[in-house]
């Protein structure tokens, strides 16, 4: 799933480790999320949305599979 996580993190000036610490996941998870390889749980998606003070849809782009 595509997302704007990297851009939003950069706007805040946070490193991947700082973002990982704020949502209590590993740095590797943030790397995979930003790379679009890993889809977060609904809980982590909400945590990220609340951290950036936006809606989940503003971070993650849902595309229907063909």
């Amino acid at each position: 799933m595509k997302n704007h996580l990297e851009t939003m993190r950069a706007q805040k000036g946070w490193t991947q480790q700082e973002l990982a610490d704020r949502v209590a996941v590993s740095r590797q998870t943030i790397i995979s999320l930003e790379g679009g390889r890993y889809n977060p749980s609904i809980q982590l998606a909400f945590k990220l949305a609340r951290l950036f003070n936006v809606k989940i849809e503003d971070i993650f782009i849902y595309e229907e599979e063909e």
Binding site: A20, A24, V25, S26, Q28, T29, S32, Y38, P40, S41, Q43, L44
Partner: peptide, 11 residues
């Protein structure tokens, strides 16, 4: 603990 409970690692 974070590494152990990390959701990607669990997946």
């Amino acid at each position: 603990v974070i590494e152990e409970q990390d959701e990607r690692a669990q997946t």
